[in-house]
Design a protein around this nucleic acid. Structure first.
Lengths: 240, 240
DNA sequence: CAATCAAATAATTTCGATATTTAATTAACA
DNA sequence: TGTTAATTAAATATCGAAATTATTTGATTG
């Protein structure tokens, strides 16, 4: 397998189901999912004992998973004081948004410039798959659909996957994860008003048309829009 | 302490001496240092047993350190197959260089644009300290001087420290670490021909003069030059 | 009554041993 | 002789308990 496809595959497989040859990796995946979905909210203390019963494994796998997540920035660690879910704030959101725009603009420009036919096909495929899955797993109210989340992640990474730098791609993936935590806060409010499908479709078209500037501005607008919704949501919560 | 100063402090303290409240953190620091200095070469298998005797601790701290390092990208991990030092190659070096230039250009532009008097003072101070320490800890031949390495790291991060994004700053720090591994391969050859002090001085001046374009081009040239030396060194090794 | 110190309680970190998995070696067979 | 299967050896991953460190509680004193 060519290196980029491999890297992409690894990044895309949030491995809810397939990977994980060890308990530590399984716990890592589950913990990661629970943090991204908001099931473990920002700032939450992560006690070993509690996690041991929650995931039904011993001490070591829990600890390994937490250490990896702390290097990923999803969990904070303080010597002798244990772990907690990384905190979240409006200021952090702004910083995150800014950084994402910087990095993804580069990645997208490079990706469109260098992307070959393979990349184009991966992108179209990723969009198709995403368009086939419902945003929410329930009809009337919103509830996280892990399948959509995975495909959404895969779509955005596909866009950037031909950027030519595994480092950059990994960083974009990491920032994506961070943003997902915030997105879960806002989704309940905005659902189902926003038509994300159209936005994704437009991006796919601009990218496969090799229209760099158009694609970049669509992507950045996409993120700005998401951030605005999140900002408004959080403000409302803080007011009440 | 303001958040950025704190982040910078944490990133700069490669904590060879002071931090480390737990064995795991101590081992993490020492392992990191041994990898960056090349004492543990790229590709090296990292057996728990060997590391246990090397660092004189039990199983768990070793494992924790390795897991953190794997998320940092200095170590690779494969389920059921353990850990090794991340590999290195000419192709990876090019990718690294490219990514560094992308990210550090943004960081430096932002830093110079937003940096306040505090930042300026931190920078001047960092340069002064660096200029006071010898590149090599031995007079006649080259041998790693950990103090210089720390101050060099601190200098480069100071330059970027006012970029306004802890994420970006952290990524630049990570890529710096990666580049350090390569730098250790080349230093023996280039030492003491190159005058790095002059280069750092010029950067400091351009930055404090708020001459953005000049500072950026000096920084990128600095990295290009380093990369060229490394390329040549590696080529020579491969030929022989 | 506030503040400080001491004991007990809880949580984190570490160790040593065991279970599982992978890698290496040998043996059997075509 | 070369290939596959079985066996042995080595290494990784995991567990449960002990040791260390933080936190809370309660008592004592100024």
């Amino acid at each position: 397998m060519p290196p980029y496809t491999e890297t992409l595959t690894r990044l895309v497989e949030t491995n809810g189901q397939e990977s994980a040859g060890t308990l530590a990796s399984t716990v890592y995946d589950r913990l990661r999912g629970d943090i991204l979905s908001g099931s473990l909210p920002p700032g939450e203390k992560l006690r070993t004992e509690a996690l041991r019963t929650r995931y039904e494994v011993g001490n070591s796998p829990i600890r390994e998973a937490l250490n990896r997540l702390s290097a990923d920035g999803l969990v904070t660690r303080e010597d002798q004081k244990g772990f907690r879910v990384a905190s979240a704030s409006l200021a952090d959101l702004e910083e995150l948004l800014k950084t994402r725009c910087w990095l993804e603009e580069i990645a997208l420009r490079e990706s469109i410039t260098n992307g070959d036919a393979d990349w184009e096909e991966r992108l179209v495929l990723a969009f198709h798959r995403l368009s086939r899955v419902r945003r929410s797993s329930s009809e009337d109210h919103y509830s996280v659909n892990p399948q959509w989340e995975d495909l959404h992640r895969a779509f955005h990474l596909s866009l950037l996957s031909a950027c030519g730098s595994r480092w950059l791609l990994q960083y974009c993936a990491q920032l994506n994860d961070q943003a997902d935590r915030y997105r879960q806060l806002a989704i309940i409010v905005s659902y189902p008003k926003r038509n994300e499908l159209t936005e994704h479709e437009a991006m796919t078209k601009a990218a496969t048309d090799r229209n760099v500037d158009e694609a970049v501005s669509l992507l950045l607008a996409h993120y700005e829009r998401t951030a605005r919704i999140i900002r408004e949501t959080i403000s409302e919560f803080e007011e009440s």
